[in-house]
Amino acid sequence: MSDAILLQGCDLRKTYVLGRAEVPVLHGASISVEEGSWVSILGSSGSGKSTLLHLLGGLDRPDADSGQVLYRGQSVWEQSQRAINVYRNNDIGFVFQFYHLLPELTVLENASLPAMIGETNESGLERAETLLTQFGLGHRLHHKPRELSGGERQRTAIARALVNEPSMLLADEPTGNLDEETGGEILGVLKELHQDGLAIVMVTHDPSIAAQGTETVHLRRGLIE
């Protein structure tokens, strides 16, 4: 069972258009993630790691001549808008480098937001609270994000990513904005989640952090090597 392929990116291409100039970033990158694995994507800054992860997470559209993103064998971008929403909401959890929390909502509300949006599970609030407590934020539930440290914000973002019990976590340099110690804490959290069977795709430019995963791939010149 653990060999089954969960997520696959085949021949992914992405070119940004800046006015007249075209900036090709991905030239046909392919990657596959098995259930329960932890894949680290290692690449230098600007190599297109975030771009790749966004394509995998259904947050950004690949080029027209690109290959596909397959989730459990199903093409993500060829589905209906509604199905893409469900994919984002329910199947994956996305953690951004810059947390991206809603400033007007409390920590608890931020963490339970995907559950409220999905309306799939009534107990979203409880699960959010459990997760936050588990991440050591039990005393911060009703604070606003701006009252939190970077590490606390990132843990809130991870709780949000996990609240709908996704089968996979996509993390874009989750420690990139944190000091070493706090970053280490976050990695500890991810490690625990992985041990509980969650598949993780993590992007980083730091080989020592990448080494935390079970598998490391390199992104260079728009290709996975």
Partner: peptide, 11 residues
């Protein structure tokens, strides 16, 4: 905020 909401699956 709209980007955040959309990225976590809001229609």
């Amino acid at each position: 905020d709209i980007g955040i909401l959309r990225s976590i699956g809001a229609s």
